[in-house]
Nucleic acid binder design. Structure first.
Lengths: 251, 251
DNA sequence: TCCTTGCATTGAACAGTGTTCATCTTGGGT
DNA sequence: ACCCAAGATGAACACTGTTCAATGCAAGGA
């Protein structure tokens, strides 16, 4: 189909309903074949592959090879590579535990949920691409959304602010996890290790008349060894219960 | 080279210096060939292609075809597709104008810069992928960074907070622009128009015992026709000059 | 027991992709 | 007028996602 390009399929409404109905079934009976090749096994193999070699190595052929099957066999259980991507982030989301809301520490709870998702992403390098590009059709992602919603509402945030804050937080978690791997020096390209000192030095090579602040604050721009930036940004995204009045109380 | 996979090349330090030195040269003399095929023409053709058909259609072969050349000819002016991506976002960044800092309206200035970048991204569907995946090597991106830095410092934000806030804002702008196109109903897949009413209806199909908040606030979750979410999130990211003390002043 | 039905699986193919390279062309400098 | 080097070519390589007729196989009915 060379004409209609790039069109992700939308799940039909029946499938949506069936997906919801299947919530209570846990897993159906595991069949007794020798090599069943279920979607569960496919997703597991795919995640294993991404963990070991990164998202770029996630190929239908390689997943099939890991399962000792042919590429075409996968298409009996998975419609697309896009659907496989969706299933993978669904699996990742299912591993995130959302706590029961405690109004006293709503912010710590919310940040903790985001941290869990971030750590899942960071375990599988490059996988946030699947989360950022395709619309997530999994109920597991919605479960996290629901949990965060409850936490923020318990914290006193108005629903509109909560919805938008969670939306922004999800997008940020994805983008952050996608970008974070660049900061590890060991994974860099072609033996050319770009560590922090090198980055700072490059910043200070800039002409001071054109980039005065970048030169002066090169240290601040490259600081944050761990996930300080992550905590900082999330702390602002989930700022407080009354965002409309913020930004003007200091004058 | 099937072994060393996915390794983006890092520009050498000499190239970095040469790039800085070339800042003053504007454009070198345009050669007088019939069809010169410079990197400028390549980037232009690439951007035109993305604007018309989206980032998925950006292919070396198609860019070459648009320039009536062969794919291999591009590699005389551009090392990679990754470098082409980098040049494209550099071009986009160069179109963003950063104002001289006005401490009285630092926040509006900062949000305006982000809005400019967002609008550039939205003009070229899918192009934020290039900004999120590869490390931006262009000085144009750094120019925006520098400009925002000056604005936030003028607003009284401490350097560390400013650096991290800008970092978070950049990542959010990319993620937002990447996701935003999904919300337009006309571009959706296979004639199945998923408009806002449909999305709300799907949310209300959820079991209320498991997703009470998602059902109750489906309207809030899907609201924000224009760029309200964008302004909301950026307003929080660029919250204020004293982030460490926030979040506790209401008790 | 045999047979049939249905489905998972195969193997091959198709239309693309990024990238390389030996070979040719051709414009500008001597 | 000559020459040469930079740029363009076209073909190839190793991949990619996806489709599909043909095949095998296991379970269910007669």
């Amino acid at each position: 189909m060379p004409k209609k390009n790039a069109s992700r399929d939308i799940v039909s409404r029946d499938q949506w309903a069936a997906q919801i109905a299947a919530l209570d079934d846990a897993q159906s009976a595991p069949r007794s074949r020798r090599a069943p090749l279920t979607v569960g096994r496919i997703v597991d193999a795919a995640l294993q592959l991404v963990e070991a070699e990164g998202f770029n190595a996630l190929t239908m052929r390689r997943v099939a090879a890991a399962l000792q099957a042919t590429p075409g066999a996968l298409y009996a259980h998975v419609r697309d590579k896009a659907e496989l991507d969706d299933l993978m982030i669904g699996e990742l989301c299912s591993r995130v535990t959302v706590p029961v809301p405690d109004p006293a520490q709503w912010k710590a709870q919310a940040i903790d949920v985001c941290r869990q998702l971030r750590d899942q992403y960071l375990t599988y390098p490059g996988i946030p691409r699947a989360a950022l590009e395709g619309t997530p059709h999994s109920l597991e992602a919605l479960r996290i959304f629901e949990g965060l919603f409850a936490i923020l509402l318990a914290g006193g945030m108005p629903p509109q602010s909560a919805a938008w804050a969670i939306d922004g937080a999800f997008q940020y978690v994805g983008a952050y996890s996608l970008v974070w791997l660049r900061r590890r020096p060991e994974e860099d390209a072609d033996g050319r290790v770009v560590d922090r000192a090198e980055v700072i030095e490059r910043f200070t090579m800039l002409p001071q008349d054109r980039f005065p602040n970048s030169v002066a604050y090169a240290r601040e721009m490259t600081s944050g060894e761990g996930h300080d930036r992550f905590d900082f940004t999330l702390g602002r995204l989930l700022a407080g219960p009354d965002p409309q009045l913020e930004g003007h109380h200091e004058h």
